[in-house]
């Protein structure tokens, strides 16, 4: 089903954005192959939304370039948008329009539109066609936005914190719909989210962003299986020094040296046992939330 094509759905090179003196996105380089799902995680203000807005041609870049489906977003955004479905974090669909009017409006703007799919999803989402957007609840607006994004059968779906503030039921409906579109065809999905469980479910590759920089970009399983927490209990008087290769975070307290090591292997334990007087070395698996937090904490500590 998912042949990793050599074609790239999304690529950025040294993408940079500055707001006044602050660098929101710092030479970000991304490569997202066609047919994969990329999860973009990072603390608030890390630059995820800024990056996505630049990809959608809604924010001027200060440096670097971005291409979606091979199309340069700064030179030919209109052509790119025909093939991309986007769901933003904040919605500003014309509040005076009724649901049918919004659908009719968007339908006229896209070259291709699947009426059958649109009708199906409209029914599935239980959206009242005659209701005005201003009378829709938040969850309904998000569902409408997703409907608009998938009805024109885009090759790329870009979702910016799509499920934030939604109740678990609507979140499940949303994920289900996104999954169905992934299953239909070779669709590429880029989504940023704070709900790490969603990212762990859906993403083939995860990118951890912090202060506009990519701290890590690798396959979800690799990140989870390869990143481990190591607990080394040192003998009295011993203090830690040079940590093993791949350490992204560490803390020493009362003889206990905790480390989070990326790319963990038996060599890591061997290194610790050889270099330091250890009483015991234990290895723990980590969930995505811990991995993410340790990456960020580690970067903060070294900054």
């Amino acid at each position: 089903m998912a042949e990793t094509s050599s074609r790239l759905a999304i690529e950025t090179d040294d993408l940079t954005k500055r707001f006044g003196g602050k660098t929101a996105v710092d030479h970000l380089t991304l490569r997202i192959p066609v047919g994969t799902t990329f999860g973009f995680i990072g603390p608030n203000g890390a630059g995820k939304t800024t990056t996505i807005k630049m990809l959608m041609g809604m924010l001027r870049m200060n440096g670097g370039q971005a291409r979606v489906l091979g199309i340069d977003v700064s030179t030919d955004p209109a052509r790119m948008k025909q093939r991309v479905g986007y769901v933003p974090e904040l919605h500003f669909i014309y509040r005076w329009m009724r649901v049918t009017e919004v659908i009719g409006f968007c339908r006229a703007l896209y070259d291709q539109w699947n009426d059958r799919l649109c009708a199906e999803v409209l029914k599935l989402f239980e959206l009242d066609p005659n209701k005005k957007v201003k009378h829709l609840s938040k969850g309904m607006v998000v569902k409408l936005a997703l409907l608009l994004a998938i009805a024109h059968e885009p090759e790329v779906l870009i979702l910016d914190e799509p499920t934030s503030g939604l109740d678990p039921l609507i979140r499940e409906e949303f994920l289900d719909s996104v999954l169905r579109t992934i299953c239909e065809r070779q669709r590429t999905v880029l989504f940023s989210s704070h709900t790490l469980s969603d990212v762990q479910r859906m993403a083939d590759t995860i990118g951890i962003v912090y202060e506009g920089r990519l701290l890590a970009e690798c396959a979800t399983e690799e990140l989870l299986v390869g990143t481990k927490r190591v607990r080394a209990v040192l003998r009295d008087g011993a203090t830690p020094g040079e940590p093993p290769a791949g350490t992204i975070w560490q803390r020493f307290e009362r003889r206990e040296w905790l480390l989070t090591v990326r790319g963990f292997s038996p060599d890591t334990v061997a290194y610790l046992k050889a270099k330091y007087p250890v009483d015991s070395v234990e290895v723990f698996d980590l969930g995505l939330e811990d991995v993410f937090k340790d990456f960020v904490k580690g970067r903060r500590a070294s900054a």
């Binding site: 089903m1 799902t37 289900d176 479910r201 083939d204 399983e221």
Partner: peptide, 18 residues
């Protein structure tokens, strides 16, 4: 089936395939 399980569990079909 792959698709069935992916939708049932709400996970990426690539994961089920793996």
């Amino acid at each position: 089936s792959l698709r069935q399980l992916a939708l049932e569990l709400l996970v990426n079909p690539n994961t089920v395939q793996r």
